[in-house]
Design a protein around this nucleic acid. Structure first.
Lengths: 166, 166
DNA sequence: CTTGTATCGTCTCAAATGAGATGATATTTG
DNA sequence: CAAATATCATCTCATTTGAGACGATACAAG
């Protein structure tokens, strides 16, 4: 029995495609915030992230900042160097391990941090304001789930099988 | 009455900060999908997006693809050129306007499109599977709201005022 | 028609990006 | 202890990015 030519799949509407939408929204938000951080504080996003991590309290090695920020090794290294150049961050060798640098906010960095945090909260509020409180809570859960799933999709690049190995 | 030193704002937890999380999730998802499109079809994300838009049916000018894809002028231009080089997309001058190119899927491009679409749906399903149906619906609404809000935040770069001018 | 302005897509170029190499130090092994 | 291996942060370099310049065409006003 002759097959009819492969039927057109219903065309995919890019505008409704989840990965596309996530990417566009993420980019738009990032740009909006990047513009502000740059204009108001002269910081790039990677610089701001490093400051934000260090502002949480503990001094951290570059390596630890990499893990917590989710950023690339090179990005963090460069951000740390630029921040040190601006005297916003102090870099001291780690006692007992000359390879690692301990990063901490320098006094000037701490002062700047105290200026940025309220501003960042305001900006976030301006964004979150678009959502109801329930939506905000839901989004929180959703982002966590999506992140874990996307990370695991990245993990096993090929082969859709591999049930539970490793 | 002497002021006490400016009280530390509660430190901002980057890991809970909405713009940060959106950006990280968006990036992770994008990478996961970009890896697949590249490995399986030899397409970059911009190339895939252009194909997806053209696959919706109508032939479109570069300009229209720019609008619908949300991508940069240069990105679309380059993607279209690469796709044309691979004979996936046909570029013909628009009758009556020699400036514009009309883009449409070439036969080879249409064939590839038919391969990609089911795969893209499968990948999306693998991602969306992490969420309940209610969450998927909620996310849809949420992304729309966030996108509009972020876009408008970008609009009025400075000055929190300007009520309604322009 | 001629001049001025707007829009099309591409090109240029400087900046950002990130995979891999590198040098320096630490740790493990024999 | 010496040698092999691992880890840290940085550097290198090829690629990607996007703002602005650009040439070409279209349209508008005189």
């Amino acid at each position: 029995m002759p097959r009819s030519p492969p039927p057109d799949p219903a065309p995919l509407r890019l505008a409704e495609f989840l990965p596309y939408r996530l990417s566009v929204v993420g980019e738009t938000v990032s740009r909006a915030f990047a513009d502000r951080y740059e204009a108001e504080f002269g910081l790039s996003i990677p610089e701001w992230r490093v400051m934000a991590i260090l502002g949480e309290g503990e001094p951290l090695s570059t390596q630890e900042v990499i893990v917590r920020s989710g950023m690339d090794r090179v990005k963090v290294s460069r951000a740390a160097i630029r921040l040190a150049t601006k005297s916003l961050v102090a870099r001291t060798p780690r006692p007992g391990d000359q390879r690692a640098h301990i990063l901490r906010l320098a006094p000037k960095g701490l002062a700047l941090y105290r200026l940025i945090v309220p501003r960042a909260r305001t900006l976030q509020a301006a964004l979150a304001e678009a959502l109801t409180v329930e939506e905000q809570r839901a989004l929180d859960v959703i982002l966590g789930k999506l992140h874990r799933r996307a990370a695991s999709l990245r993990g096993r690049e090929d082969e859709a099988s591999d049930p539970g190995l490793e």
